[in-house]
Design a protein around this nucleic acid. Structure first.
Lengths: 336, 336
DNA sequence: ACGATTAATGTAAAGCTTTACATAATATTT
DNA sequence: AAATATTATGTAAAGCTTTACATTAATCGT
């Protein structure tokens, strides 16, 4: 039912109804009651698409996440939602699935639909498109990964720090042959994690051997593949640092299938913690990002931006190393 | 940049540009080229919000899922997306978080934004709102749970069958004191799973004791709580059937904290399988739904509906019992 | 070469709301 | 009681696109 139909029925003007809905104070209490009653009763009227044509705000925040199956992103979305809702915003999620083409589709849809704000976990997509979104008036925040959009807020974990924690832990256990299953190098977080790995090794005076760094695409299958490659090496590593959760799943599948014993044959540390990591056999040593805090911070910042605050900000959160049983001293002394 | 600005710049009418974009065949190749070039070059023009005011289709499919952290739904969304994209549709996700208020917010947003289709995993929300969405011209499919909307497609797993499989398995192992951690009873899938539990017991001639059926809300914490209640009972169960994945996570946390041994002290079967269930200690016996197939079927059906096919359809998918080590014969013979 | 088709473009209406401004009604002040 | 300020409502424009219909130009057949 459109506004004008309802207006005819209630014998008031379209404008009055619109006001009763959007600026209740501007309309007399008696009429307001009457209108609201009619509207709410059986949901007669539902504001339609034309609303956003004239209105300034859409009260919608778009989030494009890189992988809906990764609990990290799922947790992120969840932690955002409650606060958004309390402030009258709805959050809309698009899954880019680590595929920049899908990311573009998502972005242009958000552009079409004119979201008020955009939280972007970039998959390495189109900066021009992001600029267009910004030009449409939306506030943009990069989360987890930098999109390359100039002058924008970016919120991530402290990746170098987290990685350093992991590598130092392995080194202190006596490992020398430390490999990594890294992420796709066009993503900022994958790069910083790889850099962190290399630098930590270098600082400890351990030679950085190229073949010990295999890059996957942040998906489970690639974790499996990379693990396979590492174990085909003439001298396989005694420890591995995995750059994200999904690839770690792949690694786990691999070691289970092949019977490689963790931590006896291989120590494992991974970026990202998940519920089940502490219950799996053996429990996995992980670098936990404070997802919930990060989500809350992100949405708060977004709300501020939406209220008009300016000035790009770069915030990192300290991850925590949670030591479990997947890491131990190497069984064999490494060759010197 | 708006159409009219661009039109002035190119010296053609607004209509011609619009046509070049939407019905390329209706415009002369030379002009079309010129327009498209101008449009694509640096993304000058981005179609705006007014587009959907006049246009029939939005080429967007809205999905409201009940819990983004549940891998079942995450997998579902993922399996939908590729096919949707290949057919030129974008999928938009809203997370209701098992909260009917949030579900309503999501629905009314989809209504506002006029999605072409809606796939709904109901949290028990507002049927009137769904009717409104339908009236707006959207095709609606219920997934996993029935919303109560009349004359609509509904796609679910065969819950009674799945539950029966689980309970029969427990019975065949010799269990008599079989409990369940059920879902919220206003949801159709929670109801059928509880009914399946009760009926399977009854058919086997086992008394159905009320206190053995605890209802949670499909979230992890409630699984924990229900488990606690079951073990406070004077005569705790020897086996438990959990109605969904998240609650099973809660149960696992509980048994780990309290040191209850699985399967020695308690056999566990759960609805929903997850990657980690086979690697956890002990591996969990689970009823796996064919998520991927279900997702593909759902989106195919949606595309048909969008092409105009009619007639509500009710389709169920057979779940599979995957027996692992969390179920075994009860240690103590049950009292008779 | 002329009339009849066909093709390409333009004009303007429609789509539905929000909101600036105008008007009418009511309350307040002197 | 008249003049003024305040409040409530209505009128109409604006917002930007799509598309039915009108118009103009080009092509074709005879």
């Amino acid at each position: 039912m459109t506004l004008s139909e309802l207006a005819r029925e209630l014998n008031v003007s379209i404008a009055t109804i619109s006001r009763a809905l959007n600026r209740p104070d501007d309309v007399a209490p008696s009429t307001r009651e009457r209108i609201l009653a009619a509207v709410h009763r059986n949901g007669k009227y539902q504001p339609g698409k034309a609303r956003w044509l004239r209105a300034q705000q859409t009260r919608t925040i778009g989030v494009v996440i890189s992988d809906i199956r990764n609990p990290f992103f799922a947790g992120f979305v969840k932690s955002i939602e409650d606060i958004a809702k309390d402030n009258g915003y709805t959050v809309l999620v698009c899954n880019a699935d680590e595929d920049s083409e899908k990311e573009e589709a998502a972005l242009s849809m958000f552009l079409d639909r004119k979201v008020a704000g955009l939280i972007n976990c970039s998959t390495g997509g189109n900066v021009a498109l992001l600029r267009a979104v910004r030009q449409s008036g939306a506030a943009i925040i990069d989360f987890d990964r930098e999109s390359g959009l100039e002058n924008t807020d970016v919120i991530t974990a402290d990746n170098v720090r987290g990685t350093a924690l992991a590598i130092q832990h392995l080194i202190s256990l006596g490992h020398q042959r430390i490999a990594t299953i890294a992420g796709p190098q066009h993503l900022s977080n994958a790069r910083t994690r790889l850099e962190g790995y290399q630098r930590s090794l270098a600082r400890a005076g351990i030679e950085v051997v190229g073949q010990y760094a295999q890059s996957g695409n942040f998906q489970a299958e690639s974790g499996y593949e990379c693990a396979r490659k590492l174990f085909k090496l003439p001298q396989p590593p005694t420890a591995v640092f995995v750059a994200n959760l999904e690839m770690c799943s792949g690694l786990i599948t691999f070691v289970r299938e092949t019977g490689i014993r963790v931590p006896d044959d291989l120590s494992v540390v991974t970026f990202d913690d998940a519920f089940w990591m502490k219950y799996i056999d053996p429990p996995i040593t992980a670098i936990a990002q404070p997802v919930e805090k990060m989500g809350q911070y992100t949405i708060q910042l977004m709300l501020e931006r939406l209220r008009g605050s300016r000035g790009a900000q770069r915030k990192t959160f300290a991850p925590k190393l949670i030591i479990r049983q997947s890491t131990a001293a190497p069984r064999l002394r490494p060759v010197v």
